[in-house]
Amino acid sequence: MTLDPRTKMVIVICLSTLALIYNSAGELLPLLLVTLLLLLLFRIDISSVWVYLKRFLQLMLVVFIIQCIFTRGGEVLLSLGSTALVSSQGLLAGASLVLRIIVIISAALIFTTFSSRDFILGLVQWKIPYELAFMVTIAMRFLPLFRDEFVNVVTAIQLRGVELKQVSWGRKIDLFRSLLFPVVFGALLKAQQLAVAMESRGFRAYPRRTYLRRLDFIWIDYAVMLIFITITLMLIISY
């Protein structure tokens, strides 16, 4: 199914809104199923969900444990002496929070089916100023740039013979503190170069610009969007 990127954006927003509103595993589980079904419809490899989830595994584990311990009520499942450590309520709360994260990450995968350029096009055709649309995508590009910068530096450090895994924590903090300034400054320099490169190719020369491609918002997009918004609103109101 080829939908307009704007339709896909609306779908992602609907799914994540519901994920944020729903609180129990009983509601989140069906939502996850719907999300996965949509991914299949968009021809996204379901196994790639796992690839993305892996990066958040530690975070999810920490969140899960915190929820388990700090939510009280229900049956006590695990206790340390007389203090209850894990309750049935806590376990459920932890599980639903993890489910919520999984739904949001899976829904966000829909973004991978179109390029940032189509995203800009969609926004501009909805009369959003192009400077703003570009700013959003450049910002989205910048997070990976910071990450790349960090990965490059860590690789370069290790290649100069420093075994980061064996360095003591004090030394490690010292090392990273001394790197903070050059890395941040380096990334800022690159941002500046990027702005210069864009401007030197005529960016913002005129109040408007043209586009090589255009997106066609057809009836199926209107239909799909309407259905998703209506269902989401109904679910929220009846909740």
């Binding site: 690789t155 370069a156 013979g161 380096g186």
Partner: peptide, 21 residues
């Protein structure tokens, strides 16, 4: 590990920006 390799083989990247920190 990269560090073990790095102690035996020095590596100069194509783009100097990527290795100066």
């Amino acid at each position: 590990s990269l560090a073990q390799i790095g102690r035996r083989i020095g590596y100069v990247f194509q783009n100097p920006d990527l290795q100066l920190f």
